[in-house]
Design a protein around this nucleic acid. Structure first.
Lengths: 226, 226
DNA sequence: TGACATTAGTCACAATATGTGACTAATATG
DNA sequence: CATATTAGTCACATATTGTGACTAATGTCA
């Protein structure tokens, strides 16, 4: 027999980790909310409470639109987190990470503000965990999904693209290797525009435009950490 | 101000996709539940309803223990799913995938039964989606987490290990390459036992025993599908 | 018993992929 | 015009991976 759950019904929120590049690192969008009884003010990840009949993706869209405005921002689910308290009293946070392109990081009001990951205000344990896992999720998907392109403007130079990869991977890449791999993958196409950025030779602008190709099938890769 | 959500409070379940190898493919554990008013009987993924003060990992443990018994079964979160109806009336399913080693796939009662993935009874759209994503999650983590070892007994031959990888990847691997990569990764250690399986030369038994090593850092890999 | 089938395990070489420094090109600065 | 600076390419060394062929140790069966 199907039974109702015994205890009090629990509820959940959809929490959004919006990331954008800024000052050669990542920044996350936080919202200032005053807490009920304490009258204190604190920064929290933007969230939407669950409502009847609304799917997770819709709730995430709401939270994103409310905070960063742009509806075209790319996002994906990171997972569910239940440990520690949530500012909205939710038992469960479903986390979505949203990538906002460089230069489009405008904000929907005074209560929102971008914080560099190196200069975060104090957050609850749960929020720190969600933030950490969101950054990990982006990094882990780097080779399978075009996440780097979602953080760049529609057109970009190959040096900018490389710097974005370096930022996300946290290490330097060799220029020639990077471009060779990029060419082999047929992921970008050149535009006929060039950008002259101060001194140095002007760089050609590219756009993301993957051409159909079958995924490489190599042998197994044992890349586990002991 | 922190507000309570407006609509009716929603509740969630933790649903478990337990997988085990069987007949050279994967099998999933389903539970027979009779639905309230319809008096009909159908197979569903085992689940636990949310209760006060219990974290997701605990709920998953309950569902696993209730269905497959063994507490040592390895499991990990896959994600949250809200689309379509759930047999328990939950608005939201948090899915955990659990890997049950070959040969330990005993079951906790008549209402539970293993089904080969190729011979599934009809499931709801949500359940099909959760199952699909769970299998994908296992496959995607193959190179980063020792999931194949969690589906094998404590000791195994290298041929068995290779067959498990082939099963999970859905393609054949070359014996010499496989073993070379395995040696380089220092993931298994030999026991002093050998198994003679009918004809052919006896095979040495190994156990999973990763030695500490730093993760490989190569250049970028663009492995996206167009 | 001995030829043969069958599975385990290893090797060497070919084919690819990657790491790297040095090179040329095109601009701004002074 | 010399120099600094960034873009873009090349060639070669090194590392990794694909592959077939080989040896080893068993069971089967004439």
């Amino acid at each position: 027999m199907t039974r109702e759950p015994r205890g009090k019904r629990q509820h959940y929120t959809v929490d959004v980790v919006a990331l954008t590049p800024r000052d050669n690192q990542l920044a996350v969008l936080l919202e200032q909310r005053s807490e009920g009884r304490e009258k204190s003010v604190r920064w929290v990840l933007p969230w939407s409470a669950s409502r009847n009949g609304e799917g997770l993706d819709d709730l995430a869209q709401h939270a994103i639109r409310r905070s960063v405005g742009a509806a075209s921002v790319w996002n994906t689910q990171v997972g569910a987190f239940s440990e520690g308290p949530h500012p909205g009293g939710s038992d469960l946070s479903i986390v979505y990470v949203a990538l906002v392109p460089m230069g489009e990081a405008t904000v929907q009001g005074d209560e929102f503000q971008w914080f560099l990951l190196s200069e975060l205000p104090p957050l609850t344990e749960r929020q720190n965990q969600m933030l950490q896992e969101s950054v990990n999720a982006v990094r882990d998907r780097l080779d399978l999904y075009p996440v780097a392109f979602r953080l760049l403007p529609a057109t970009f130079t190959l040096s900018e693209l490389q710097h974005m990869y370096e930022l996300l991977l946290g290490r330097r890449l060799h220029k020639a290797s990077f471009r060779r791999a990029l060419t082999a993958a047929a992921l970008v196409e050149p535009t006929d525009e060039w950008r002259s950025e101060g001194r140095g030779r002007p760089a050609q602008l590219f756009r993301y435009g993957p051409r159909k190709r079958r995924r490489a099938r190599r042998g197994v890769r044992f890349d586990l950490l002991g």
